[in-house]
Amino acid sequence: MTTLRVQARGYGAILGAGWRTALAYRGALMLTALTTALSLAVQLSVWNAVYDGRSGIQGYDATTMTTYLLAGNLLAVLLSNQIDDTLSGDIYRGDHVVGLLRPIGFLGSHAAVALPYLAVRLTLVVLPLLGFALVFVPLATPTVAGFTWFAVSAVLATTLGILLNLLVGLAGFITTSTWGLRYLKGTVVAFCSGQLVPLELMPAAVRGVMEWLPFAAMVNTPVRLLLGRLEGLAALHAVGVQLLWVGLGLLVCVFAWRGALKRGEVSGG
């Protein structure tokens, strides 16, 4: 019990440090808000052109599509948590040894740092952009059930984002630089998660593959739940699949970390 209390106190300390660190880079947050807004504006213009004269595509009318893109892009802001960057950078320089010298879980402390980082992004990037969109952009209104499913699903999607970034960061133990891998991850997640195009609009064969990948659980699933396109048992099934991916992600992270510890090498003197 005492050990648990001490561990909780330790994670609390790390969370506190994460808050202050996340707030230290206000300029970067403003830039994120700006690039997200610009990206959204470009995507909405493209889809506006696609919808010219059409009432809907595969059951998505213009308003639903706008809502999908807005929710998807804002969720994507929360999938980026910088763990991959900081973790792989630490491994590259050998600075991860400092984390190992603390009486607290190494991966857990990295994940703990991500939470305040995400909270700050939610407060200073996502909510202002959402507020702006609610006032100036016509959006579909979700049902209470849809919003509730979305809230649960978004938490799981964000957890998956943390786990994926931990794994990419841990790849630093194998490859010297993870820049390429991180770039690839960004592109794959944007496309395969349905952030740019709903998976339902993709050709059946492509969609079939995408739906078997964990990325779909990061944007496509929560946003479809928000829009009421998955209800009842289908919603339960979708969230269940998300939970499975989270469990699998946790296992893979733990094994990857144990492997890295066993390898136990440190760059630099």
Partner: peptide
């Protein structure tokens, strides 16, 4: 470790 920091860089 003389060339590594165990302090929080931004704090």
């Amino acid at each position: 470790f003389g060339h590594r920091t165990q302090l929080w860089w931004d704090l």
